[in-house]
Nucleic acid binder design. Structure first.
Lengths: 164, 164
DNA sequence: GTTGAAACCAAAATAGG
DNA sequence: CCTATTTTGGTTTCAAC
């Protein structure tokens, strides 16, 4: 028996409302946050602290428009591993962690072993990444799927703020 | 000639350093931000304001751990449109905007027309979304790819902070 | 661009109900 | 949980260089 990673802290309706608000706008002053969730300042502030300490809130970040900073190309990369050993996985994990252009890495069920989301300035930058990555880690197959238009993009998670 | 969406504001090295810092931690006080980018408080603060006004910084948000709030399933959904008309696209855009579970929607090049990233509590929630979505918008084909493990996930974009 | 300082406001911590 | 209060510290603006 391996056990589950962590006992998820129990969040009540007010906690979830707090998260819902802060996921949309982390600049919201505690005063306003408190009235939106139906609490007064002090206990509201304490809940926010608790959610941060518990690792439920992992950070507060600025969201930047990729196009404005010259990152016009988004690519989803499907990878089949050369073999299915713990060693390959560890090596792969280490390599993808190195690239700031790789925004997301998922280990997948089904045909595709890994799915990557990559953000770069353009085709030549992507090709450089592709060549470098496939040099560092052996892949049976790599399929690149190119985004033409980012129609929707949000960091707000679908949290349920109704009922208990 | 249709023209490009917008002339990207020209960002110098200091602007990019500011963005680099704030993408990692938006709680950084202006005082500390200023010294990290090699500026004094006032002009640093003015740059941050300008970057917000120009829409380069689109917001400051709290990042929440999905598992902690019971969102344990992440699915990438590949969709082929029933037809390739502006009407279908508009309808599709409207529908996907409705679902908070849909974090990202990309219009793709190649075989797959659209790629969605979906975050839900589990299989039954995903199936409900799948049934509902395919009822509201006609799809020629839908392929769901399930994430087993989120190995990497960041909102920090790979901005170049060296040279001019 | 710099420094320094004022005015304002929010965060953080405290005490009492 | 609430209100009230205080302290602390950051933001924002301004003046002068």
């Amino acid at each position: 028996m391996t056990g589950v990673p962590a006992p998820p802290p129990t969040l009540d309706r007010i906690d979830r409302k707090i998260l819902h608000e802060l996921m949309q706008d982390a600049t919201l002053p505690v005063t306003q946050l408190a009235e939106r969730v139906g609490l007064s300042q002090t206990p509201c502030w304490k809940r926010v602290q608790k959610l941060e300490a518990a690792g439920v809130i992992t950070g507060r970040v600025a969201i930047v428009d990729p196009v404005s900073i010259g990152l016009g190309l988004c690519v989803f990369v499907e990878i089949e591993a050369a073999d299915h050993t713990p060693e390959w996985r560890a090596s792969f994990a280490g390599v993808v962690a190195d690239y700031p252009e790789i925004q997301e890495v998922h280990r997948m069920a089904g045909e595709v072993d890994y799915l990557l989301k990559v953000v770069v300035s353009g085709m030549s930058a992507y090709d450089a990444l592709y060549l470098d990555l496939t040099k560092r880690v052996p892949c049976r197959n790599v399929t690149s799927k190119f985004s033409m238009e980012r129609m929707k993009s949000t960091t707000v998670l679908p949290i349920d703020t109704s009922a208990t």
